[in-house]
């Protein structure tokens, strides 16, 4: 079998960074993470890579492979034309730490602001009963392995299109798993609207496309949440009813941190076509009356992520049909 040619991003903030070429001997069935391990074990022992399980269960090894946010443990070398180099670079949405490792701590800070599961006080646990069909949807959301690829691909976060905070698809799904729990007692709609910035999502569905757990993030999670928020705040009857009878609203007024812009993001390798296409349409909130916030101006504009259409254009991706079908319709929910 021929060697694979990897171009791996190496560098850290404040220092010159580069894409380093490695020729890696290929064995049948090898995944990108295997190639990175071979490089660590034989060429670059200090290559920084985050990984744990190598079984697509922990969500640690996310990176951008030929521009597409991927779990490197699930991305097989045989999916690529090995005559062409395979580019591996860190997730662009997050600040760089070193090589392929980024600072994802912002996600943990956002998670802390979500009011946890709150069961009813007057219903003893011995009496809890619910059917499997009542929890199927919640269980879908709870499959999330927190790889943060959805956060990475989300143009709102990736391009730092807002000055106000946006929690991103991962945490919208997290809220959905609580809001749709059969006996949870808390109303997180105002939190979603005012703190979480749900209006910033304009349903381009890129998150769903990259989700390695195949969670239908937009269709099953975000859109229903948007509908609930719209019902509560933009339907006068519902608004009045909520004032009278609504569940306790919690988390309202919580301030979410804003995702910091990466510094020292690397220049892309080879053909440095860098479309900075954060268009006004894409950054416009879909539903609320929020003004479209101006970009916060990262040190370098990150490249637009290649999912779907652009993935098909990506040289070296042999089996374009494997890439999920994409939409960029920008339609509101």
């Amino acid at each position: 079998m021929p060697d694979a040619h990897l171009k791996v991003f190496r560098g850290r903030p404040g220092e010159p960074s580069e894409f380093v070429d490695f020729d890696v001997p290929v064995e049948e069935g090898m995944v990108v993470l295997d190639a990175l391990h071979w490089i660590q074990g034989h060429r670059a022992p200090d290559l920084a890579v985050r990984w744990n399980c190598k079984a697509a269960k922990c969500g640690s090894c996310g990176a951008e492979v030929n521009g597409r946010p991927s779990l490197t443990c699930k991305t097989r070398l045989s999916d690529f034309d090995l005559d062409e180099p395979i580019t591996v670079e860190p997730m662009r949405a997050f600040p760089l730490i070193k090589d392929l490792v980024t600072d994802v701590s912002w996600n943990y800070a956002v998670n802390r602001t979500i009011t946890p599961f709150t069961p009813p006080e007057n219903l003893p646990q011995e009496q809890w009963r619910w059917q499997q069909r009542d929890v199927d949807r919640v269980q879908e959301f709870r499959k999330c392995i927190e790889c943060f690829l959805c956060q990475d691909v989300c143009h709102v976060l990736r391009n730092h299109e807002t000055e106000r905070a946006f929690m991103g698809p991962r945490f919208l799904i997290r809220v959905a798993s609580l809001e749709m729990h059969p006996i949870d007692q808390v109303d997180r709609r105002q939190y979603l609207k005012d703190s979480g910035g749900i209006g910033y999502c304009n349903i381009t569905k890129c998150c769903t496309e990259v989700c390695p757990e195949h969670i239908k993030i937009t269709d099953n999670g975000i859109i229903p949440l948007k509908e609930r928020v719209a019902d509560a705040y933009y339907d006068p009857l519902q608004w009045a009813w909520r004032k009278l009878r609504g569940r306790e609203a919690t988390g309202a007024g919580t301030e979410l941190p804003v995702l910091p812009a990466p510094v020292g993001a690397p220049p892309p390798p080879a053909a440095a076509t860098t479309p900075t296409d954060a268009t006004a349409t894409e950054s416009a909130p879909a539903q609320t009356a929020e003004p479209a916030a101006a970009g916060t101006g990262p040190a370098r504009p990150p490249r637009r992520v290649r999912t779907t259409k652009s993935a098909r254009q990506t040289a070296g991706r042999k089996d374009a049909a494997r890439a999920p079908r994409g939409r960029r319709d920008g339609g509101a929910g």
Partner: peptide, 12 residues
């Protein structure tokens, strides 16, 4: 012998 310094160095 470890090369590559202290920062996020899996070899270390």
């Amino acid at each position: 012998k470890v090369t590559g310094g202290r920062m996020y160095n899996p070899g270390w």
